[in-house]
Every structure is written in C-alpha cells, then in structure tokens.
C-alpha cells in the first residue's frame, strides 16, 4: 500500500530534517507511529497524504507515485483514496454532523454524491452510534461523539488508506480505548490500511507494527 524509498524532507529555511531510507506498509496493515514531539510524526502523515512533497526520494501510495502527480491530481487522489482524521476533530461548527460527514463531496468536484453515499453515511452513523446526532451541530456533541463523527467523515469515501493524527489525543481514557476500538473495527470492516500517530503507548497493542520516528533520523539537521 505504501512504499517510501530514500525519502528526505526539510522545511524550506528550517532546521528540521526527516530521512527515511525505506519503509513499506502492506494493505490492511495497522501501523502506529510513535515519537517525541517535534520528531516529525505529523510531517510523515502529511507526506503520506501528499499534502507536502519530499525534498528527495519517492513516496508511492496505492501504486501512485505522489511526486509525479499534478497538484490537482494529488488532491483528487487524496480525497478519493485517503481518509484523514485529526486530533482536534476539525468538524466545521456551522454544519450539521450529516453535512460534516458529506464535506468531502461538497468541497471536491471529483466526488459525486449518490444514493450509495447516503446509504454509506447512514450505515457508518449506525455503526458508530451517532445516528441520532446527525442533525446536530458539533458543539452539541460530546468529545467522543465528535471524534466518532470525524472517523465517519474519513471513511465516507471508502478510502484505501486512513491516516490518523493522534485521534485519541483529546479524549479521556475511557473514550480513548472506545474510539480506538471503533476506528480499528471500521478500518478492518472497510478493508483499509491504517497509519496512526499516537503518543499513547498504552494503545499500541492492537497494531500490527509500531514505527518509532527515532529510526528515521528525525529532528534537527546539522
């Protein structure tokens, strides 16, 4: 699913330096990325999503070499093949939960909303237990419900890859485990691959593999 070769990344004018000689993630694999703050975990996710491009080296996701795609194609690829989950949920406050779930369809002409989309939305909402919250606004939901809604939004396009940036970071211990179990179940149910950044070492058990950012010579360049 993911193939990184001789990846090198530096922020322009910055001192941060990320180097990944080689990294492979298989289809349906569940990978956790751990590391200290500033070690480049989020940068790694942004590179995998094609939000930023490497300074050198190659990233291949679902047989697409991201650096060879145009900006527009990379956006289309991302919105249709990759689901993103953020630590702060990033739901739009002025939309209902239903509209938030359909956001990818509203912001990209590459996706077309259909009856299948609406059926998928209802199914996801039922599976994550937010059916009765669909017409509410995010500020009317609990933290756990918001993250469940964010998970649904990431899965609404039936992506092949889920990139989750500390999705349990803002949750209490009970909700952390519950949301993680839900995320893993959904990812498994949809046959997707999961790459999740986390600080929480108590949550690493269910993952197939744990990648430590220290292995990638992250941190400051000389």
């Amino acid at each position: 699913m993911i193939k990184l070769r001789n990846l090198d990344f530096r922020y322009p004018g910055g001192v941060f330096h990320l180097r990944v000689p080689a990294l492979d993630v298989r289809e349906r694999e569940r990978v956790a990325i751990v590391g200290a703050s500033g070690s480049g975990k989020t940068t790694m996710l942004n590179l995998l999503a094609g939000i930023i491009l490497p300074t050198e080296g190659a990233i291949e996701v679902a047989a697409h070499r991201l650096s060879t795609l145009s900006d527009s194609d990379r956006r289309t690829f991302r919105i249709s093949r990759i689901g993103l989950i953020f630590q702060a949920f990033e739901l739009l406050e002025y939309l209902t939960v239903r509209d938030n779930l359909l956001l990818p369809y509203r912001i990209s002409p590459a996706l077309e909303e259909s009856s299948d989309t609406r059926a998928q939305l209802e199914r996801l909402a039922a599976e994550t237990g937010i059916t009765d919250r669909l017409e509410r606004r995010p500020d009317e939901l609990s933290q756990g419900e918001r993250q469940r809604a964010a998970i649904c939004r990431a899965l609404i396009t039936a992506p092949q890859l889920i990139l989750a940036d500390e999705p349990t970071g803002n949750l209490d211990p009970d909700n952390k485990r519950r949301v993680l179990d839900l995320l893993l179940a959904q990812v498994a149910g949809h046959g997707a691959t999961l790459v999740m950044v986390t600080h929480d070492h108590d949550l690493l058990d269910p993952f197939d593999r744990v990648i430590d950012m220290r292995d990638f010579h992250g941190g400051e360049s000389p």
Partner: peptide
C-alpha cells in the same frame, strides 16, 4: 483552521 481542514482533506484553493 477550517480552511486548512478543507485543503488537507482535498479541496482545491480555488474551491475554498
């Protein structure tokens, strides 16, 4: 933050 979310998900700057 909202604009960033949309572009990270896959919205074109023109769409935003």
């Amino acid at each position: 933050a909202e604009i960033l979310t949309m572009t990270r998900i896959g919205a074109a700057p023109g769409r935003v």
